[in-house]
Design a binder for these strands. Structure first.
Lengths: 206, 206
DNA sequence: CCTACCGATCGGTAGG
DNA sequence: CCTACCGATCGGTAGG
């Protein structure tokens, strides 16, 4: 507005040019998909020419790799931040909150992580698979602990883990960070839903 | 094998060439994504040249449109086949079974439906959105009926519907039609999980 | 960060 | 269903 030049994307201070490229790439990859996004389009959003991007990055796939990597970091850090000494119910709630927080806080990165990671190849792809497995293992440990303590009641821990992760994972499709539901309310809904699914409260009626 | 010519894709009898193109397109779109699949690659899998495809179809997008359309048909038909006069619990189970049956029966089509429909544009895209909404409305009616009858106990019918659909939708990511779990067993797991999540059995303990 | 440019490949058409 | 071919666009490089 006013006298400022028509620079569409103003960089937040402290953000490197590279971070800005990644941010905009995340937006475009999310909206159009990795392969439907051209480097020229990405450059245009940043007010520069396609070739200039290569002063900051090596390749298009590197962008995807780094976006997916950052999301995987965030999810894994969130899961590993869940206190092991808390009760299974509290741990599950913390896991859910963390998952939703990551999605809400970086919906573009998260969406690209869930939707476009298959377009990675070689070791990068393998690296993603490993971290997804690690994330799933964190949730599985919580479910197993709940079954062991009698707080949960499920027939098959692996299937229960898979279904719970399914419930959480799909949320990137519809969760709107600028939506009406605040994180804590959404966490409460999700937690109650998942706890019921895991058979919590079957023994102890309220 | 034997003396048969090296025709990699043998058409099932009664299947038109066009159906065969759609089938193979579904496989490739699922594996590589819509934009990462070239018409030449598709043609090669069918032992013909890229240009020859256009004797059977008008455009690449038409392929996507028809694949997504067929999947939407299948899901909607499944949901509408659930008997309205059954109990909410039975209706939910039937909905779950139908959903899983569609995915298991046509995993390629279903995966493309969930993953690639955003690459449709204009009226085709709108058409998909309408049918997704209709499918969701079918599930919502079941959840609402269960709440009304006292069989289910949820705080918010819309959120509960959304989370249940999330649990079901993600299954295209991992469900393996050639996997160990037969449909009925998987249906039983899912149904128990979702019924618990919806608060069924909270009042009446078994 | 720019201009100029590269070879490759894309979806699709013409004409048989 | 083929050969031959089209304009457009792709990711990326050279050289400044």
């Amino acid at each position: 507005m006013g006298t400022t030049p028509s620079n569409t994307s103003t960089a937040p201070s402290g953000t490197s040019r590279r971070d800005e490229i990644l941010r905009v790439a995340g937006e475009l990859f999310r909206r159009h998909g990795y392969h439907a996004t051209s480097m020229r389009e990405l450059a245009k959003r940043l007010n520069l020419r396609g070739a200039s991007l290569y002063a900051h990055i090596d390749s298009k796939e590197e962008l995807l790799r780094e976006i997916v990597d950052r999301a995987a970091d965030a999810f894994l850090a969130s899961a590993r931040g869940v206190p092991c000494d808390a009760s299974p119910v509290a741990r599950l709630e913390a896991f859910v909150r963390g998952h939703l927080r990551v999605i809400e806080g970086q919906i573009e990165t998260a969406a690209v992580f869930f939707h476009e990671w298959t377009h990675l190849s070689g070791p990068a792809r393998q690296h993603v698979v490993e971290r997804r497995d690690a994330y799933q293992a964190e949730l599985r440990a919580i479910v197993a602990a709940g079954v062991a303590s009698g707080d949960f009641d499920v027939e098959d821990v692996d299937v229960a883990t898979l279904l719970t992760l399914s419930t959480l994972n799909w949320s990137y499709q519809w969760l709107d960070p600028r939506g009406r539901l605040p994180l804590e309310e959404l966490t409460a809904f999700y937690t109650e839903y998942v706890l019921g699914a895991l058979g919590a409260g079957k023994g102890a009626q309220r």
